[in-house]
Computed example of a mutant assay.
Amino acid sequence: MPVWMKAGWVFFVLTVFWILEGYYKLVFTKYNKWKHAKTNLILLAFVMLINLFFGIATAGIFLWLDNSNFGLLQLIDVPVWLELLFSLLVLDLIAQYFVHYLLHKVQWMWRLHTVHHSDKNVDVTTGTRHHPFDFIIRETFALIAVVILGMPIGFYLFYRILSVLFTYFTHANIALPKKFDKTLSFLFVTPNMHKFHHHYQMPWTDKNFGNMFAIWDRLFGTFVYADTSKIKYGLDITDHTNDEDILGQLKLPFNKTIHYKNKL
């Protein structure tokens, strides 16, 4: 997919949920939405630049897969729709749930991931908020999943389209009807479900790691669903930092004044 097309899809989804946030708010907090967005969108610009290099690597991997017939999908003979569903599940497990779990549990990874969690006003633009090194780790795991499966490029493209949609949907400051949100969360990650993950303290911070499918959190015992009014955004160990200072956020993982809790 050309970079301009990726960027177009990202900004289209961002715009849709930005508009919806104006009508169906979950949290009514006063903050400068444009100033807040500026920090997150600058981080998105870094991500898009990194995407240029990963695009080259991805193209090379798919060329190799076409010629080698490597991967799990080459070993099974099922209808295409089953192959696609299987690919989406494995990609979501490895490139979303598993790497997200590691980003919370391995201390040097957690340092990078704190940039995402330091946002004190979670809205749709928070979905773009990743330290460049955090994003590199995520993209690497996505390519590992591609190689394991040996999937066609069309499957990967469909996954990326859905992944972007769910990322901004789940971060958006929107309120779905509570019963609908909770019912939907039996299968898919929902806005309410993901907001618990952005609570400033444990244990909720280390729950709900999924991006598209909620089944992984339920299966591995990391699912939580409670009262959204108890959620406070941010991160206890970085609350003294300015979450809208772009240079401060880029340096946050290396800030020696932050005392990280024991992890692996």
Results as ranks from 00 to 15, higher is better:
Met1Phe: 14
Pro2Ser: 13
Val3Asp: 13
Trp4Asn: 12
Met5Asn: 01
Lys6Phe: 09
Ala7Asp: 08
Phe11Asn: 05
Val13Glu: 01
Phe17Val: 11
Phe17Arg: 10
Leu20His: 04
Leu20Thr: 04
Glu21Thr: 02
Phe28Cys: 00
Thr39Glu: 06
Leu41Lys: 02
Leu43Asp: 00
Leu43Arg: 00
Leu43Met: 04
Leu44Ser: 03
Leu52Ile: 09
Gly55Ala: 04
Gly55Lys: 02
Gly55Asn: 06
Ile56Asn: 07
Ala59Phe: 09
Gly60Tyr: 07
Ile61Gly: 12
Ile61Glu: 12
Trp64Met: 10
Leu65His: 01
Asn67Arg: 08
Leu73Ile: 13
Leu73Asn: 10
Gln74Lys: 12
Trp81Glu: 00
Leu82Asp: 03
Glu83Ala: 09
Phe86Val: 12
Ala95Gly: 14
Gln96Ser: 11
Tyr97Asn: 07
Val99Arg: 08
Tyr101Val: 11
Leu102Asn: 10
His104Ile: 15
Val106Arg: 11
Trp110Gly: 06
Val115His: 07
His116Tyr: 13
Lys120Arg: 14
Lys120His: 13
Val122Gln: 12
His131Ile: 05
Phe133Asp: 00
Phe133Ser: 08
Phe135Ile: 06
Ile137Asn: 09
Arg138Pro: 00
Glu139Met: 15
Thr140Cys: 14
Phe141Ile: 03
Ala142Met: 13
Leu143Trp: 10
Ile144Val: 15
Ile148Gln: 04
Gly150Asn: 03
Ile153His: 09
Gly154Val: 00
Phe155Ile: 04
Tyr156Glu: 07
Tyr156Phe: 15
Phe158Ser: 12
Arg160Glu: 15
Ile161Gln: 03
Val164Met: 05
Phe166Met: 14
Phe169Ser: 04
Thr170Ser: 07
Asn173Gln: 06
Asn173Arg: 07
Ile174Lys: 13
Ile174Ser: 11
Phe180Gly: 03
Asp181Ala: 10
Ser185Ala: 13
Ser185Thr: 10
Phe186Asn: 01
Thr190Met: 00
Pro191Asp: 14
Asn192Ala: 14
Met193Ile: 02
Lys195Pro: 04
Lys195Thr: 10
Lys195Tyr: 07
Tyr200His: 15
Met202Trp: 12
Asp206Ser: 08
Lys207Asn: 14
Lys207Glu: 13
Asn208Gln: 06
Gly210Trp: 10
Ile215Glu: 00
Gly221Glu: 12
Thr222Gln: 08
Val224Cys: 11
Thr228Cys: 05
Ser229Gln: 15
Asp239Gly: 02
Thr241Val: 14
Asn242Met: 01
Gly248Gln: 07
Asn255Tyr: 01
Lys256Pro: 05
Lys263Gln: 05
Lys263Met: 05
Leu264Gln: 09
